[in-house]
Design a binder for these strands. Structure first.
Lengths: 227, 227
DNA sequence: AAAGTTAATTATGAATTCATAATTCAGTCA
DNA sequence: TGACTGAATTATGAATTCATAATTAACTTT
């Protein structure tokens, strides 16, 4: 990432921010669920103080919500929230596309093409798991290529909230084909070093993804565990 | 802002996040300075625990940096960081411009025009202070009009870091004229409800602002207090 | 007198304690 | 039997305490 974290090993609360964030992202802690303070303390072998510091940070990221005297709960991502979030991610990805196009050298482009190839392979094999991973790798690589820590950080904050929804699993075949086409175009723009074009594509790609998410939401509604 | 904070009064640490953030924003705590934990505790009449929770949150926002066993310091905004931050703000303002244009009703536009008029008055009076305020009001109004909490939050996080630099004070006359012209154009696009045009303008407006900041930085370099 | 070394002080990270708000559960009464 | 009241339990927010790292001050040695 950046150079500010070269030597120093993380403090307890930083470590905990990551750990708990991962629990949320990988759906171990499900949306709406209470964050079990005591259990986590025992599991990680730390006292409540650093854990609670971590929870405050995660709350400021919007990943959990703190209710006064009622502890923390994993944020339930509502349709409205997704609706608001995607345009912002789209705007950031547009910028990332433009910057990446300007900054990537040939080797960098080749690396992304390789990942793209892996993604295509997963697509033709019908392997959603691998596709999902490769797809994420490509987006992350483009963000990273933009070489802008601020952009990267804000993108990550937003991506985490959306990715958690994990709707990629119930991706429709039609949308899958469309997404693949969009990626093909993106690669083409990247090869041509058409910065504005790539940016535009990444933006619409993300907005289309929003539609797909909503379609999936409407289809298999209300399958999350509560309480 | 949103409806999630209707009834509940803030917890101590939330209150402290705001208070300390304000200290940083209004330059009471200057870049590079140590955040005096003990003094703040006494000033606010709280124990270290909630204050430290607040510091963790502010650190995650990037407003301060925590050094292991060496306390917190106000982040020094480097030229590089500004350079990275402005394009991201620009991307968000572009989006805000587009959305605001779509969402604002006539009354809303009139309110912004009124603020614009106030800004012009300040300009002609050469009143930098009032200009700065009105300018900020306009940008905030447009962001708010976009009606997107996520966008608003991320914009605020970034704006705080930049605004802190307070270079508006040493705004050059030439840049001031240019900024005014850009604002005139923005208002025109808003009247025409040209969403894409307004977005584009807000983006370039912000990128031009970056240039102005850099010019100011180069001119009056190194007038910040250290240590 | 200057530089290096060690002791004292202070500040910090984390654990623990404490007071209080929220929840659970038993008991009561309709 | 079911709803309500109130005590017991639990969880939470915040203060305090404790161990250790960092800084400062004093002292030694050349």
């Amino acid at each position: 990432m950046s150079l500010t974290e070269s030597i120093k090993r993380q403090s307890l609360h930083e470590e905990l921010v990551e750990r708990v964030r991962n629990l949320v992202v990988d759906n171990t802690l499900k949306p709406g669920e209470k964050v079990p303070e005591k259990d986590l303390c025992e599991a990680f072998g730390v006292s409540r103080t650093p854990l609670r510091e971590a929870l405050k940070v995660l709350a400021s990221e919007g990943l959990i919500v703190l209710q006064a005297n009622r502890g923390a709960r994993v944020t339930r991502v509502t349709r409205e929230e997704l609706d608001k979030t995607f345009p912002v991610i789209a705007a950031l990805e547009q910028l990332a596309g433009e910057l990446a196009c300007q900054r990537l050298d040939d080797a960098g482009i080749e690396r992304i093409e390789a990942e793209h190839a892996a993604m295509m392979k997963a697509f033709h094999a019908g392997d959603r798991q691998s596709y999902f991973l490769a797809n994420q790798n490509i987006h992350n690589a483009l963000i990273e290529a933009a070489d802008n820590d601020i952009l990267e950080m804000h993108h990550r904050m937003l991506a985490v909230r959306v990715r958690r929804a994990r709707f990629m699993a119930n991706l429709s075949d039609a949308r899958w084909v469309q997404a693949i086409e969009e990626h093909e175009q993106m690669i083409a723009r990247l090869r041509d070093r058409d910065a504005v074009g790539l940016g535009q594509l990444m933006k619409t790609h993300m907005l289309n993804k929003r539609q797909a998410h909503f379609a999936a939401l409407d289809a298999g509604a209300g399958n999350e565990t509560d309480n």
